[in-house]
Design a protein around this nucleic acid. Structure first.
Lengths: 214, 214
DNA sequence: GCCGAGGGTGAGCGGGCGCTTAGCCTGCTG
DNA sequence: CAGCAGGCTAAGCGCCCGCTCACCCTCGGC
């Protein structure tokens, strides 16, 4: 709570680590454009225009259009991994940590949907090297969730026959929020997070406190 | 089992309804290209090349590149809806019908992953009219699944607090299979279908026959 | 054998793409 | 005040895009 990257409220400023200001404006414009129309359908002229600059200005701060996507993807995956690590490393039972992980992960995908969309769906637009770097981060994301589920199984809290498959399904469920959120209805990110945490606890066969019919 | 669109084995030939032969070859080539690289990153030269034809040949059978996507999306959604309708209209308890719907829907998304990818992720590349037509089909897909869940709740088979939200989550889980399948591991479509049917029955709080620890 | 229809091709048009270059404008240093 | 570094722009290069056009080849009907 002491750096310039934090607001007065203590909430981290999104993209606060991107400097100078013009580079951040371009990156935010790129996130919006990529999320709306996809990486390949977005032109450098569109990005620069949204940031209120000329097309050439983009190349002062980024070497190519792909570098923009790479930076967005890298920062976004770091944030997603950070969210899961915080939840996985917290106190409490495996069920509590899993519910915390799912609800916060889903809240991020819903609340910062434009970013999440780019992060989750534009991976294939990256070149081989950048792609490999991002895939390594995704493996760590998977490992965090699998770790919680394994803890729950070992503690007898969960009833899961296929840990790898269930981990995949849980993450898949959360990630797909970025695809549909705000299209279907009037749910808030908090509501979706709570609903999904409950559904995931059912998926792993957790004995939920106070759950049951009525 | 009597038309030319069926193979000897009784399995419907994919894209069998697309004639003449050259139009079907172009469409199959387009499905592969769109699935691999995305609609906007695919060129008409690439599609024609995969079909073994010159770029100009495409325009004998299709007015624009977008019409190709529209036809693929339309046929794919029809097929997906057909799968769900068959399962939803079958005999048996709500739990049996839901498990059948999920496993067959997932099997399609996994087994025909290239088609499913295009169908599920390239919607935004369509123009407003085609998009609206496809969205109407998606609403019917949603209604089929919601119908089964409502039946289960009414019969006391399921324990679901938020029917709309749970329907959304179930469909979301199935659809996302098209994104990750064949990337992560060596599961067969049948295995994923069975796993997902089990997970979904847990999500709706169904009393599964023979389920439990050990 | 001739003809018309329809599937196919080679060449290429207009335009928009990612990206570059030459030079301007601003503000800091001394 | 001169000198200059860095952020920025107008103009535009070379390329490849979706799509078109003039023409050709094949084949069934009479």
């Amino acid at each position: 709570m002491s750096t310039a990257e934090q607001t007065a409220g203590g909430e981290a400023e999104p993209w606060g680590e991107v400097t100078p200001d013009a580079a951040r404006r371009l990156l935010v414009a790129a996130v919006e454009a990529f999320a709306e129309r996809g990486y390949h359908a977005t032109t450098t002229r569109d990005i620069a225009g949204r940031a209120g600059m000329s097309p050439a200005a983009l190349y002062i701060h980024y070497k190519t259009k792909e570098e923009l996507l790479h930076r967005i993807s890298r920062i976004g995956h770091d944030k997603a991994l950070d969210i899961l690590r915080t939840a996985a490393g917290g106190e409490g039972s495996a069920a509590e940590r899993l519910a915390d992980a799912v609800s916060s992960f889903v809240r991020w995908h819903a609340g910062r949907r434009t970013t999440a969309r780019v992060v989750q769906y534009e991976l294939d637009a990256l070149g081989p090297e950048a792609r490999a770097e991002i895939l390594a981060l995704r493996r760590r994301v998977d490992a965090e969730v699998r770790g919680i589920i394994e803890d729950g199984v070992a503690a007898g809290e969960f009833d899961v026959a296929d840990v790898k498959g269930t981990t995949l399904a849980v993450l898949s469920l959360c990630i797909d929020v970025a695809r549909w959120f705000n299209i279907e209805g009037p749910r808030t990110p908090d509501e979706v997070g709570a609903l999904y945490a409950d559904l995931v606890l059912r998926m792993v066969g957790a004995r939920r406190p106070g759950a049951g019919r009525g």
